[in-house]
Deep mutational scan, measured.
Amino acid sequence: MAAGGDHGSPDSYRSPLASRYASPEMCFVFSDRYKFRTWRQLWLWLAEAEQTLGLPITDEQIQEMKSNLENIDFKMAAEEEKRLRHDVMAHVHTFGHCCPKAAGIIHLGATSCYVGDNTDLIILRNALDLLLPKLARVISRLADFAKERASLPTLGFTHFQPAQLTTVGKRCCLWIQDLCMDLQNLKRVRDDLRFRGVKGTTGTQASFLQLFEGDDHKVEQLDKMVTEKAGFKRAFIITGQTYTRKVDIEVLSVLASLGASVHKICTDIRLLANLKEMEEPFEKQQIGSSAMPYKRNPMRSERCCSLARHLMTLVMDPLQTASVQWFERTLDDSANRRICLAEAFLTADTILNTLQNISEGLVVYPKVIERRIRQELPFMATENIIMAMVKAGGSRQDCHEKIRVLSQQAASVVKQEGGDNDLIERIQVDAYFSPIHSQLDHLLDPSSFTGRASQQVQRFLEEEVYPLLKPYESVMKVKAELCL
């Protein structure tokens, strides 16, 4: 049975990233139509530049190519590739079939990587351009969430054990800070992308030097003109047959890092959902379990974690691919890159769409948070109580021993009897502590235990987050809708 299948058929496997999760716009960027249309555009740009620099290419040939950029006979191309065992030459023939007058000058002087690699770089750039505003929107939604809850005390956790208090907004800023680093890295790697350009079979530009009869300047002009037509500021000066596969490492490393950030955020949300302090959106008709109707599973956060793990592992592909590119190139890269580049971007696209949807509907339960604080705060307040007693004339050592005994009794009630923490009640009825009984409410005010959390939130948002989001103001209103 021949390899390949009808990918629109229910009898043929289709990647869930495309069929179930990723956005239509990201799927289109990695589609065959987008790819092969870009090949034709690159052939047109090459012909236009070659004509401008004096090669015998007519206006009629150029116009014929322009008129057929979208006229792609995919069936013919597939048949040609089956016959020739070469995808680029299959599309040269297919393009030439609908451009008979231009057929002889299509791909003039070029090698397969002229269309293959340059198209990949265009796709990487455009895919990054799709991700950047999506990530900015996630940051914006979380920034709104953090600002609104900047002063809401909550129990902090280290080692997932109760620690000092923080605020809900401050905790959210930990998430935002990681995503801001990801946004900066995505922008950097996007701006650092260079075009492969017009380089020939081993990167020496020998074929173009021959076409222009040894004119170095025209060869350099050709490279520059096509690079500018493709919208790049610069091209690699040095290439082998391909652009260095280190570029793929750079791009997928940034995406993998984004995956790590999203995994951490969504894990926190899942843990908070278990504590009943916070939940992701839950639709009115949504079913959490087929057997347990009360369940409210954090399905979206779980999906993000599941896909983020996949995204983090994909960076190993370009690392290994770059390491086995012998001399000017081997074909070890080809099949692998067809999979890992598309999957990385479709996965990143999915987790950003999902995280935006989550961040637009996060639900906080202040009463649950308050109750958990009441359970733990008495123990945390013991040092403040000791200091207040010393100020009232008591002995630190005597007070410490009193607190120690009462704390152990209260802990026994919590752990052995399943009761509430009654340390404060014990202190309130103990005559030894009568000098500070009137101060206990103040000493137990949760806001006095959150330090500068709310001020940190305000400063972080104003100095770091809002300036970073400013270039994306025009796209901030787009909502994230999930079908599944």
Rank of each mutant, 00 (worst) to 15 (best):
K147R: 12
G197A: 14
V138P: 04
Q205L: 05
Q356C: 15
P435T: 06
P56D: 13
R33C: 14
R338Y: 02
I122M: 07
I249R: 01
I287K: 03
K101R: 11
I106R: 02
R85W: 08
N185A: 14
M387T: 14
C113A: 11
H310N: 08
A388L: 07
P293E: 01
I269A: 00
P471D: 15
N297W: 02
D32T: 12
M387V: 11
A308Y: 02
L135S: 09
T167C: 04
E50G: 08
Q51S: 09
G203M: 00
S474H: 15
D216G: 14
T330C: 15
S67Y: 11
L252D: 06
V115W: 00
R426E: 05
L355M: 15
K170C: 02
E79Y: 14
L132V: 13
Y432D: 10
Q428Y: 14
M316D: 06
E463F: 12
P366C: 08
D144Q: 14
L174W: 15
T166Q: 11
V457L: 04
E280D: 10
D332A: 04
K470G: 13
D32Q: 14
M181N: 08
M387P: 06
V368H: 06
V226W: 04
Q439A: 14
S301R: 02
S261G: 14
A411V: 08
E343G: 12
Y432W: 07
G259K: 01
H86Q: 06
Y13V: 14
L142C: 10
N185T: 09
P100K: 12
F449Q: 05
P298I: 07
V475H: 14
S9H: 15
I62F: 05
T227P: 04
D120N: 07
K35T: 14
V429M: 15
L183A: 09
T119Y: 10
S112D: 03
H93G: 12
E425G: 10
I403T: 06
P293G: 06
V390D: 03
Q409L: 12
N384S: 14
K170G: 01
T313N: 10
I72C: 08
A411N: 11
A381L: 09
A348R: 01
R85T: 02
A348T: 13
K391R: 15
C399M: 04
E220A: 11
D223Q: 10
L341S: 15
E48L: 04
E48G: 04
E148F: 11
C180Y: 05
E463S: 08
A230N: 01
L440A: 06
A143C: 12
E401T: 07
G451S: 03
A256D: 05
A77T: 14
I385R: 02
V247H: 10
L484I: 14
L46T: 01
H93I: 12
Y294M: 02
K170I: 01
V168T: 08
L362G: 04
T354E: 03
T239I: 09
T167W: 00
R329V: 04
E60C: 11
T166H: 06
L132T: 12
D182I: 07
H263P: 04
L423W: 03
T166S: 04
L69R: 08
A235T: 13
N71A: 08
R309I: 07
G169I: 00
A49P: 00
D223L: 06
E220M: 12
R234K: 10
E401W: 06
W326D: 02
G231L: 09
L311M: 13
A322W: 14
T94A: 14
T167P: 04
D398P: 05
S407A: 09
K233E: 09
N274A: 08
I358M: 14
E79A: 08
K367T: 04
A335M: 00
D6L: 11
V251A: 14
F208W: 01
D445W: 08
S306T: 03
Q458Y: 11
D349N: 07
F157G: 01
K147F: 09
P16S: 15
R194A: 07
L186G: 09
T119I: 05
D144L: 15
K479P: 15
I249W: 11
R33Q: 10
D268L: 03
R137T: 15
L121W: 00
M181L: 11
W43M: 06
E462D: 11
E464V: 07
L482T: 14
G231I: 01
D333Q: 00
E250N: 13
S9W: 15
G240H: 07
H400Q: 04
L84I: 04
F449N: 04
R426W: 09
D59G: 11
V363S: 04
F36E: 09
A49R: 01
G8H: 15
Q164D: 00
K66F: 12
R85L: 11
L209Q: 13
L53G: 04
Q286F: 06
V219A: 06
R196V: 07
M225I: 15
R137L: 15
K66I: 07
L377P: 03
S334T: 13
A22D: 06
E148H: 12
V262Y: 02
E80W: 07
R245Q: 08
Y21F: 14
H93A: 15
D59F: 12
Q458W: 11
T58F: 12
K470Q: 12
E425C: 07
T347G: 14
R234L: 11
F145Y: 07
E463P: 04
S438V: 11
I369W: 02
K470A: 13
L482P: 07
L255R: 02
G393D: 08
G200F: 00
V413H: 15
P153H: 00
A235M: 14
H7M: 15
Q61C: 12
W175Q: 11
D129F: 11
G394E: 13
V189T: 11
E481P: 14
F95C: 02
R188Y: 00
T244G: 15
R188F: 05
G109E: 01
F195W: 06
T204H: 05
C27T: 14
N297E: 01
L131M: 15
V219S: 04
E80D: 14
L108I: 11
L69T: 09
L46M: 11
H217N: 15
M26R: 01
M476Q: 15
I62P: 01
